[in-house]
Design a protein around this nucleic acid. Structure first.
Length: 838
RNA sequence: GCCGAGGUGGCGGAAUGGUAGACGCGAGGGACUUAAAAUCCCUUAUCCACUAUCGGAUGUGUGGGUUCAAUUCCCACCCUCGGCACCA
């Protein structure tokens, strides 16, 4: 009897052998059949690697190994996204410099990562805090500046009072800081932005050509928020001034009865009449100080004020009072709308709650319980819902039918198959026709134009923090910004600073930084004290892996060959942050001429989230589970397979180690079965065993390809259950099983491969091929149903005819009882079942 | 509120129109052992029947429908989880 398999000993041995032989080093130049396997690189926190990292990296490695065995030149790099707040906060608490704690954390994580036994090519690792890396973060900033995609602007920005820094729009979740969950406030500050909005349409169009989860694409699409509409100019009564609004429903303009502008609208102060000034400033006092979150959660449709000013409806010539209300946002469109209370729910809500606006809505139709309240009212300009253009009552009755609802631009609109009414030259048209015609009218009369509006905002990239890449900008004594010339890159992060979060950039307190700037540029020159958002660092790292630390961003022939990334795996929380920034940066780099592709990630997959008792694991909750103890006790193969066996990769789930014994047993039993039974004296296996083997090859290969690791593993378990019953097995079978295990349990696979006398490494062999002819078994089981209920089954030869099978089915003892009444109908599904109806 | 995904044994899950519960955990029983661990064998959706392990009924959130046949397709509802949320 052999010694039982000892993973800890075997795994260390094989990891060392792989490293010595350099099997995972990829020659990027010579590779002919590239497969770029990428996982989102980790932040080297003091928490070390947790179970979530393993849940992401182990399956990604299984795919990479599988692709290697299929003959691809696989490149699988690993690096560290090491700039960022936790290291800096740790420094504030303990006085340990972020560079020091980061270095230590990176070392610990590398040790942990090496124990997974992934096929990482460590020669090509990156660390975003390394000056040789962040010189390219800075270079990217300079390129953006050069191409006028980086600019400085003063305006209201999101500010996190706890992190003491500004945040990009994408980093505010429900009015709270994405990182620390503190309520975000608005501050007027001058900050650096990147013009991601110029790529709105390209970012939208590109989604069509990438293989990403539909949900993620949809989220990006919503985040970009394209809508087609018109800008309409309204003349103001008694003022030589016009007010521009944005609408997507220019066809309803005949129903527009008042105007609403956002509290921050620049015209508010100018147009407010003397009598109304008191009310307006009281209103602004109530509203303007509100935080983003308060604005979003307690919008009051009661709150709003009349400015006393009036605009002229360009089509009807009617006077329209101008109101200020917080339900109109300055950050979207023009910060001003035309209100159509008979048609828009919000406009209706606002008008209905205000005495002075109520006359502008005329109730016409009887209340109907099936009809939303606001639709029970109608104004002279009600622009939709009529089939025949006459009978309003009939139109509303028709709401019980299916034909009145149509989804337009993702929204439900009231619209019959019929026409616009009460709208002069738009009468009789349907909504889409009316929109077009209205735009023509606006353009002809110089009252407006068609426009496409996007919800996406420019990317705010400056941060008032220390631990980031310094923005490579200096100011002359007049305060004008100038780029730091490329020969001064990397523009080093100074070390003589104190880590005090004051809301001011800590770099302000560095004497070295200031004197360095004056020495190079002259007296009175000052550096930019802000650093860059860490999402800038991670927006191009996939290119730096390919550059092998080289002096240019990336070699163009290598970029052409290796990009886009073949398979990118990471969490879904980055859908509207990293994943949109990286696409924007890649597109910009293509336009600058540095890369040949515009999409960085060809295929994207999100791993599921692993929770602990239903809660997300986090240091603050103290419920982070470390993989280390499990790996020490059972080995990497067991732990990674257990994570994969838990359930579907993209589903995640709640962590529990209760089932791990099943995988421990599987590894031991598999080792024993193969080493004890696989023997070169056995020349051939039983046909049933060979058939099962070939079925397993097919199933495991297809399941790994489709990222269904759980069922791939269960197929191997089923096969093991079968071969354990055999006295002896052929050597070839044992070797094939070793290869089937290689992507999932790489160490065990090497162990078996070498015990059975295989040459070289298992991971360097070709993935086994199955013979379709061998999968077909000589007999098949046909199920017999009577009236849809299973009443028995018969085993027949695979070449049995339909007639044979039907007569056998009818002769079945149990079936006989049920078919005495006589058969009405016979259905035969080849190779599967007979269904009899009596 | 809107959009999306989902709801299957004690538990993780499998099956995407054709024998529901593969595979694994756990549990119960047995073998080996002085004993325990480990290992191996049997049983394990629920209920009824049982003179051998034959058999029968029910069963995939709830209620309807389509079909010879539905976890799978259609309609309505309930619940859970994710995302978005005054976007004019």
């Amino acid at each position: 009897m052999l010694e039982p398999y000892d993973p800890s000993k075997a795994e260390a041995t094989w990891q060392k052998k792989w490293e010595e032989a350099g099997v995972f080093k990829t020659d990027l130049q010579k590779a002919k059949n590239p497969f770029y396997s990428l996982v989102m690189f980790p932040y080297p926190s003091g928490d070390k690697l947790h179970i979530g990292h393993w849940y992401n990296y182990a399956p990604a490695d299984s795919i990479a190994r599988f692709k290697k065995m299929q003959g691809y030149d696989v490149f699988s790099p690993m690096g560290f996204d090491a700039f960022g707040l936790p290291a800096e906060n740790y420094a504030i608490k303990t006085g340990v410099h972020p560079a020091e704690s980061t270095k230590k954390n990176v070392e610990t994580m590398i040790t942990q990562l090496k124990k997974i036994g992934c096929m990482y090519d460590w020669d090509k690792t990156v660390n975003t805090t390394d000056p040789s890396y962040y010189r390219f973060t800075q270079w990217l900033f300079l390129e953006m500046f050069k191409h006028k995609l980086a600019y400085k602007k003063k305006g209201n920005v999101n500010f996190c009072p706890s992190c003491q820094t500004v945040l990009a729009n994408e980093q505010v979740k429900e009015g709270r800081c994405e990182r620390c969950d503190t309520e975000v406030i608005q501050k007027p500050l001058e900050q650096w932005y990147w013009s991601i909005t110029r790529y709105s349409q390209k970012l939208l169009d590109g989604l069509a050509e990438i293989d990403w989860p539909e949900k993620t694409k949809y989220m990006q699409q919503e985040w970009i928020g394209r809508s087609e509409g018109a800008e309409i100019d309204f003349d103001l009564v008694g003022l030589n001034e016009k007010l521009t609004i944005f609408t997507t429903r220019q066809d309803t303009i005949f129903g527009a009865t008042f105007i609403v502008v956002a509290p921050e609208h620049p015209l508010v102060k100018k147009i407010t009449t003397k009598e109304k000034q008191k009310d307006i400033s009281a209103f602004l006092g109530r509203v303007l100080h509100k935080t983003e979150l308060q604005r979003k959660t307690d919008v009051s449709f009661f709150d709003g004020e009349d400015t006393g000013a009036c605009a002229i409806n360009p089509v009807t010539g009617d006077k329209m009072p101008i109101y200020v209300a917080e339900y109109v946002l300055m950050s979207y469109g023009k910060g001003a709308i035309m209100a159509v209370p008979s048609h828009d729910e919000r406009d209706f809500d606002f008008a209905e709650r205000r005495e002075d606006l109520r006359p502008l809505i005329k109730p016409v139709i009887r209340p109907d319980k099936h009809v939303a309240n606001f639709n029970s009212y109608i104004h002279r300009g009600f622009a939709v819902v009529l089939r025949d253009g006459g009978d309003l009552d009939a139109a509303f009755k028709r709401r019980d039918e299916d034909d009145y609802q149509l989804v337009l631009q993702g929204k439900k609109c009231w619209r019959g198959p019929g026409q616009i009414i009460n709208s002069d030259f738009l009468n009789g048209l349907d909504v889409e026709q009316a929109k077009k015609k209205m735009v023509q009218w606006l353009e002809k009369n110089k009252k407006g134009k068609a426009i496409i509006n996007y919800r996406l905002r420019d990317w705010l990239v400056s941060r008032q923090r220390y631990w980031g890449a310094p923005i490579p900008i200096v100011y002359d004594p007049k305060g004008q910004p100038h780029p730091v010339p490329e020969e001064h890159l990397p523009w080093l992060l100074p070390t003589d600073v104190e880590f005090k979060p004051t809301g001011e950039s800590p770099l302000r307190h560095s004497k070295e930084f200031k004197s360095r700037t004056e020495k190079i540029f002259g007296k009175g020159w000052t550096p930019e004290y802000d650093t860059m958002d860490t999402f800038v660092c991670s927006s191009f790292y996939y290119l730096r892996y390919l550059a092998e630390g080289g002096k240019s961003l990336v070699d163009s022939s290598i970029e052409k060959k290796w990009m886009p990334v073949s398979l990118y795996i990471g969490g879904p929380e980055h859908a509207c942050m990293h994943l949109i920034y990286a696409r924007f940066v890649m597109m910009a780099l293509k336009d600058f001429g540095y890369v040949s592709h515009s999409e960085p990630f060809r295929k994207l997959v999100h791993q599921g989230l692993i929770t602990n008792k239903g809660a997300k694991m986090s240091k603050s909750k103290g419920n982070v589970v470390s993989p280390d103890a499990f790996v020490k006790e059972h080995g990497s193969d067991v732990f990674r397979m257990y994570l994969m066996f838990m359930g579907p990769f993209e589903a995640g789930g709640d962590w529990s180690d209760l089932g791990i014994n099943g995988v421990v047993r599987f590894v031991k039993r598999m080792h024993r079965a193969i080493t004890e039974k696989s023997d070169k004296k056995v020349s051939a296996d039983k046909p049933a065993i060979t058939a099962a083997l070939h079925k397993t090859i097919k199933k495991v290969g297809e399941d790994i390809e489709g990222l269904r690791f759980n069922t791939a593993i269960s197929a191997l378990m089923e096969f093991l259950n079968l071969i354990e019953k055999e006295e002896a097995l052929s050597l070839d079978l044992g070797k094939t099983v070793a290869l089937l295990l290689a992507p999932l349990a790489p160490h065990l696979a090497e162990e078996l491969w070498s015990v059975l006398g295989g040459k070289g490494f298992a991971i360097e062999q070709s993935w086994p091929k199955y013979d379709p002819a061998l999968i077909v078994e000589s007999t098949m089981t046909v199920v017999i149903q009577v009236n849809g209920k299973v009443r028995g089954d018969i085993v027949v030869s695979k070449d049995a005819t339909k007639d044979d099978i039907l007569s056998l089915a009818k002769a079945n003892e149990n079936v006989k009882k049920y078919i005495e009444a006589g058969i009405k109908k016979e259905i035969y599904v080849p190779g599967k079942l007979v269904s009899l109806v009596v």
